[in-house]
């Protein structure tokens, strides 16, 4: 179910030999990208595509460097990341907690699951306009929207994960008269961890998307706001450069997550 994983995830078992062959093959891919970039550069320079929104690649890289030196891109990125991190923390904590509680308690399930299922299909951008009226356009709104988007994948995965916990484990805990809270914490939580991690991974990519979305719809800072601002300012080069930085950020977060996952849940994917 690791839909948001990487393409490499499955190749881990392969032998070193095939890995080396693969690396050789990947050269074609790098060549392909270089060819695309070259075509972009040439088509813009020679005026094959006459458009103000088609700046040569070199100009974008130049803009990216100027942007980085100017520092305002880092400020925007930091603002976005801060909100994303807080929202992610809140949303995933609630998702895990409610997922486990609802998975174990029938009363809570009957009380809360229908409500969660009603809210779940709402596309996040749609909750932003009504929330503006209650939370304003500041951090509270954006963090709320991000938490909401994070909550659902984490909750769904945790909830499904709890359902698959081996009943023998729970029976054993009961035999030893382990308390309810202790059973949750010491037996169910670790057993559900791989499912939780899958949910968290889906959530990480969503988090960044929604952070950018909320800044676009109701922004005064952050990279989403920056992008819209540059669109109106007709500065495509700065816009492309900002997207590039965002892509690097997204990639780094995903990598970081995979490393943490391998470190913290070594039994992931081995059951």
């Amino acid at each position: 179910m690791s839909v948001a994983g990487t393409l490499e995830g499955t190749s881990r078992k392969r032998t070193a030999g095939s890995n080396r062959r693969r690396l050789g093959k990947r050269v074609y891919g790098v060549v392909l990208i270089a060819a695309i970039l070259l075509f972009w550069e040439v088509s813009s320079r020679l005026g094959w595509i006459v458009s103000a929104y088609w700046p040569p690649v070199s100009q974008i890289f130049q803009a990216a460097i100027v942007q980085l030196a100017g520092g305002d891109i880092l400020v925007s990125l930091a603002a976005t990341l801060r909100r994303a991190a807080i929202g992610f923390a809140v949303g995933s904590t609630l998702g895990v907690a409610l997922g486990i509680l609802l998975g174990r308690s029938k009363v809570l399930r009957i009380a809360l699951l229908p409500l969660i299922e009603i809210v779940r299909p709402i596309p996040t951008p749609a909750v932003i306009p009504p929330l503006i009226m209650f939370l304003g356009v500041d951090d509270a709104l954006k963090i709320f929207a991000i938490s909401l988007a994070t909550f659902f994948p984490v909750f769904t995965n945790t909830f499904a994960g709890v359902a698959t916990v081996d009943d023998t484990l729970i029976q054993t805990a009961r035999t030893f008269r382990t308390s309810w809270a202790r059973t949750l914490l010491r037996v169910i939580l670790p057993a559900t961890l791989p499912a939780i991690a899958a949910g968290l991974r889906t959530a990480t990519s969503l988090t960044l998307v929604v952070a950018v979305v909320s800044e676009m719809i109701a922004g005064s800072s952050g990279i989403g706001y920056y992008l819209v601002e540059m669109q109106y300012a007709l500065r495509p080069d700065l816009m492309y450069a900002a997207v590039m930085y965002l892509a690097i950020t997204g990639y780094t977060i995903n990598r970081l997550f995979l490393v943490l996952e391998a470190r913290l849940i070594p039994w992931m994917g081995k059951t």
Partner: peptide
């Protein structure tokens, strides 16, 4: 295709809307 996909995939797609 792998390098190209790996470059495009992590871009939050919402950022591409104004682009």
């Amino acid at each position: 295709l792998e390098p190209l996909v790996e470059i495009l995939r992590p871009i939050p797609k919402s950022a591409l809307v104004p682009v």
